[in-house]
Protein backbone atom coordinates (compact mmCIF):
# COMPACT_ATOMS: atom_id res chain seq x y z
CA UNK A 1 0.00 0.00 0.00
CA UNK A 2 1.37 3.40 -0.96
CA UNK A 3 1.36 6.36 1.38
CA UNK A 4 -1.43 7.91 -0.65
CA UNK A 5 -3.57 4.80 -0.40
CA UNK A 6 -2.97 4.65 3.31
CA UNK A 7 -4.02 8.28 3.65
CA UNK A 8 -7.18 7.62 1.66
CA UNK A 9 -7.96 4.54 3.70
CA UNK A 10 -7.62 6.41 6.98
CA UNK A 11 -9.85 9.18 5.60
CA UNK A 12 -12.67 6.69 5.39
CA UNK A 13 -12.42 6.37 9.17
CA UNK A 14 -12.89 10.10 9.57
CA UNK A 15 -9.27 11.19 9.98
CA UNK A 16 -7.12 12.56 7.19
CA UNK A 17 -3.39 12.63 6.77
CA UNK A 18 -3.60 16.03 5.13
CA UNK A 19 -0.12 15.98 3.63
CA UNK A 20 -0.61 12.72 1.80
CA UNK A 21 -4.25 13.07 0.89
CA UNK A 22 -5.23 12.27 -2.69
CA UNK A 23 -8.80 11.89 -3.86
CA UNK A 24 -8.18 8.76 -5.95
CA UNK A 25 -5.65 7.11 -3.66
CA UNK A 26 -3.25 7.09 -6.61
CA UNK A 27 0.18 8.63 -6.61
CA UNK A 28 0.18 12.10 -8.13
CA UNK A 29 3.39 11.63 -10.06
CA UNK A 30 2.23 8.37 -11.55
CA UNK A 31 -0.98 10.04 -12.76
CA UNK A 32 1.16 12.75 -14.31
CA UNK A 33 3.41 10.36 -16.20
CA UNK A 34 0.36 8.51 -17.53
CA UNK A 35 -1.21 11.79 -18.59
CA UNK A 36 2.03 12.70 -20.32
CA UNK A 37 2.11 9.33 -22.08
CA UNK A 38 -1.47 9.92 -23.25
CA UNK A 39 -0.41 13.25 -24.68
CA UNK A 40 2.61 11.71 -26.38
CA UNK A 41 0.31 9.23 -28.16
CA UNK A 42 -1.00 12.12 -30.24
CA UNK A 43 2.53 13.32 -30.94
CA UNK A 44 3.56 10.00 -32.44
CA UNK A 45 0.17 9.53 -34.11
CA UNK A 46 0.74 12.74 -36.06
CA UNK A 47 4.20 11.61 -37.13
CA UNK A 48 3.00 8.14 -38.16
CA UNK A 49 -0.08 9.53 -39.93
CA UNK A 50 2.11 11.84 -42.01
CA UNK A 51 4.38 8.94 -42.91
CA UNK A 52 1.37 6.89 -44.05
CA UNK A 53 -0.25 9.72 -46.02
CA UNK A 54 3.00 10.41 -47.87
CA UNK A 55 3.74 6.75 -48.57
CA UNK A 56 4.37 6.30 -52.27
CA UNK A 57 4.37 10.05 -52.95
CA UNK A 58 8.15 10.45 -53.21
CA UNK A 59 9.29 11.92 -56.51
CA UNK A 60 12.78 10.33 -56.49
CA UNK A 61 14.50 7.43 -54.76
CA UNK A 62 15.81 5.79 -52.73
CA UNK A 63 12.61 4.12 -51.60
CA UNK A 64 12.14 1.86 -48.57
CA UNK A 65 11.45 -1.47 -50.24
CA UNK A 66 11.43 -1.15 -54.00
CA UNK A 67 13.94 -0.29 -56.67
CA UNK A 68 13.94 3.31 -57.89
CA UNK A 69 15.94 5.99 -59.66
CA UNK A 70 18.03 8.01 -57.29
CA UNK A 71 20.73 10.64 -57.30
CA UNK A 72 23.99 9.15 -56.12
CA UNK A 73 27.53 10.41 -56.69
CA UNK A 74 26.16 13.24 -58.81
CA UNK A 75 24.19 11.16 -61.33
CA UNK A 76 20.82 9.47 -61.54
CA UNK A 77 21.06 5.72 -61.26
CA UNK A 78 19.01 2.71 -60.30
CA UNK A 79 19.17 1.84 -56.62
CA UNK A 80 17.64 -0.87 -54.48
CA UNK A 81 15.14 -0.67 -51.67
CA UNK A 82 17.03 0.78 -48.73
CA UNK A 83 15.69 -0.98 -45.64
CA UNK A 84 17.87 -3.54 -43.85
CA UNK A 85 15.22 -5.66 -42.18
CA UNK A 86 17.62 -8.00 -40.30
CA UNK A 87 19.39 -5.06 -38.66
CA UNK A 88 16.14 -3.43 -37.56
CA UNK A 89 14.71 -6.74 -36.38
CA UNK A 90 17.75 -7.09 -34.18
CA UNK A 91 17.28 -3.58 -32.81
CA UNK A 92 13.59 -4.29 -32.22
CA UNK A 93 14.40 -7.43 -30.26
CA UNK A 94 16.94 -5.53 -28.17
CA UNK A 95 14.37 -2.86 -27.32
CA UNK A 96 11.77 -5.50 -26.43
CA UNK A 97 14.22 -7.22 -24.13
CA UNK A 98 15.10 -3.93 -22.48
CA UNK A 99 11.43 -3.64 -21.53
CA UNK A 100 11.64 -7.05 -19.92
CA UNK A 101 14.85 -6.10 -18.12
CA UNK A 102 13.50 -2.87 -16.69
CA UNK A 103 10.41 -4.61 -15.35
CA UNK A 104 12.70 -7.14 -13.64
CA UNK A 105 14.79 -4.28 -12.24
CA UNK A 106 11.62 -2.70 -10.88
CA UNK A 107 10.65 -6.01 -9.31
CA UNK A 108 14.05 -6.10 -7.64
CA UNK A 109 13.68 -2.51 -6.44
CA UNK A 110 10.25 -3.20 -4.95
CA UNK A 111 11.47 -6.35 -3.18
CA UNK A 112 14.63 -4.63 -1.96
CA UNK A 113 16.79 -7.02 -3.96
CA UNK A 114 19.68 -4.72 -4.72
CA UNK A 115 21.61 -7.16 -6.84
CA UNK A 116 18.61 -7.86 -9.05
CA UNK A 117 17.90 -4.14 -9.35
CA UNK A 118 21.41 -3.19 -10.39
CA UNK A 119 21.93 -6.13 -12.74
CA UNK A 120 18.76 -5.65 -14.73
CA UNK A 121 18.86 -1.87 -14.69
CA UNK A 122 22.39 -2.00 -16.13
CA UNK A 123 21.16 -4.45 -18.75
CA UNK A 124 18.33 -2.05 -19.65
CA UNK A 125 20.69 0.87 -20.08
CA UNK A 126 23.03 -1.21 -22.22
CA UNK A 127 20.12 -2.32 -24.41
CA UNK A 128 19.00 1.27 -24.79
CA UNK A 129 22.48 2.36 -25.80
CA UNK A 130 22.61 -0.54 -28.22
CA UNK A 131 19.35 0.53 -29.84
CA UNK A 132 20.61 4.10 -30.22
CA UNK A 133 23.79 2.70 -31.77
CA UNK A 134 21.70 0.63 -34.19
CA UNK A 135 19.79 3.71 -35.23
CA UNK A 136 22.88 5.87 -35.65
CA UNK A 137 24.44 3.17 -37.79
CA UNK A 138 21.24 2.84 -39.83
CA UNK A 139 20.99 6.58 -40.47
CA UNK A 140 24.70 6.74 -41.42
CA UNK A 141 24.28 3.79 -43.74
CA UNK A 142 21.18 5.28 -45.41
CA UNK A 143 22.89 8.62 -45.82
CA UNK A 144 25.73 6.99 -47.71
CA UNK A 145 23.26 5.23 -49.94
CA UNK A 146 21.92 8.60 -51.01
CA UNK A 147 19.10 9.10 -48.53
CA UNK A 148 19.56 12.59 -47.11
CA UNK A 149 17.03 14.25 -44.83
CA UNK A 150 15.44 16.25 -47.65
CA UNK A 151 16.00 13.76 -50.49
CA UNK A 152 12.33 12.83 -50.82
CA UNK A 153 9.13 12.64 -48.81
CA UNK A 154 9.96 9.15 -47.60
CA UNK A 155 13.27 10.24 -46.15
CA UNK A 156 11.84 13.35 -44.47
CA UNK A 157 8.92 11.57 -42.85
CA UNK A 158 11.02 8.52 -41.98
CA UNK A 159 13.90 10.41 -40.38
CA UNK A 160 11.54 12.71 -38.48
CA UNK A 161 9.47 9.83 -37.11
CA UNK A 162 12.32 7.51 -36.18
CA UNK A 163 14.52 10.43 -35.16
CA UNK A 164 11.99 11.66 -32.63
CA UNK A 165 11.53 8.11 -31.40
CA UNK A 166 15.30 7.88 -31.05
CA UNK A 167 15.44 11.12 -29.10
CA UNK A 168 12.83 9.68 -26.74
CA UNK A 169 15.01 6.57 -26.34
CA UNK A 170 17.97 8.83 -25.58
CA UNK A 171 16.04 10.71 -22.91
CA UNK A 172 14.92 7.39 -21.47
CA UNK A 173 18.53 6.16 -21.32
CA UNK A 174 19.57 9.35 -19.51
CA UNK A 175 16.70 8.96 -17.03
CA UNK A 176 17.39 5.26 -16.41
CA UNK A 177 21.12 5.93 -16.05
CA UNK A 178 20.33 8.48 -13.37
CA UNK A 179 18.30 5.80 -11.62
CA UNK A 180 21.21 3.39 -11.98
CA UNK A 181 23.58 5.85 -10.34
CA UNK A 182 21.11 6.27 -7.48
CA UNK A 183 20.74 2.52 -7.16
CA UNK A 184 24.50 2.07 -7.03
CA UNK A 185 24.69 4.66 -4.27
CA UNK A 186 21.95 2.80 -2.39
CA UNK A 187 19.45 5.60 -2.79
CA UNK A 188 16.70 3.52 -4.38
CA UNK A 189 15.23 1.60 -1.44
CA UNK A 190 11.87 -0.21 -1.81
CA UNK A 191 9.87 2.77 -0.51
CA UNK A 192 11.29 4.85 -3.36
CA UNK A 193 10.78 2.20 -6.05
CA UNK A 194 8.13 4.50 -7.50
CA UNK A 195 10.92 6.73 -8.81
CA UNK A 196 12.08 3.85 -10.95
CA UNK A 197 8.53 2.89 -11.86
CA UNK A 198 7.96 6.31 -13.45
CA UNK A 199 11.08 5.94 -15.58
CA UNK A 200 10.07 2.39 -16.44
CA UNK A 201 6.60 3.46 -17.58
CA UNK A 202 8.16 6.04 -19.88
CA UNK A 203 10.56 3.42 -21.16
CA UNK A 204 7.78 0.94 -21.90
CA UNK A 205 5.90 3.64 -23.73
CA UNK A 206 8.90 4.28 -25.95
CA UNK A 207 8.96 0.53 -26.54
CA UNK A 208 5.28 0.26 -27.53
CA UNK A 209 5.73 3.15 -29.95
CA UNK A 210 8.44 1.11 -31.61
CA UNK A 211 6.11 -1.91 -31.58
CA UNK A 212 3.86 0.18 -33.84
CA UNK A 213 6.64 1.74 -35.93
CA UNK A 214 8.40 -1.53 -36.72
CA UNK A 215 5.56 -3.22 -38.65
CA UNK A 216 3.94 -0.04 -39.98
CA UNK A 217 7.12 1.58 -41.27
CA UNK A 218 9.50 -1.29 -41.93
CA UNK A 219 7.37 -4.32 -42.76
CA UNK A 220 4.46 -2.91 -44.78
CA UNK A 221 5.60 -2.72 -48.35
Amino acid sequence: MTVAQAATASAEHGEIDEHHWTSTGLDTRKLAIWGFIGSECLFFASLIATYLVYRGQSLVGPLPHTESQCMLDGKMQACEGIFEIPLVTFGTAVLLFSSLFVVLALYGAQKGDRKMLITWLSATVICGLFFIGMQVYEFYHFYHKGLGYSTNLFSSTFYTLTGFHGSHVTLGVIWLSTMLVLALRGKLPPEKALNLELAALYWHFVDVVWIVIFPVVYLMR
Partner: peptide, 10 residues
Protein backbone atom coordinates in the same frame (compact mmCIF):
# COMPACT_ATOMS: atom_id res chain seq x y z
CA UNK B 1 -7.86 5.32 -14.30
CA UNK B 2 -4.42 4.66 -15.78
CA UNK B 3 -5.92 2.39 -18.41
CA UNK B 4 -8.33 5.14 -19.39
CA UNK B 5 -5.51 7.68 -19.55
CA UNK B 6 -3.82 5.45 -22.12
CA UNK B 7 -6.70 3.93 -24.07
CA UNK B 8 -8.66 7.09 -24.94
CA UNK B 9 -5.69 8.97 -26.37
CA UNK B 10 -4.87 5.85 -28.38
Amino acid sequence: IFTNLFVWPI
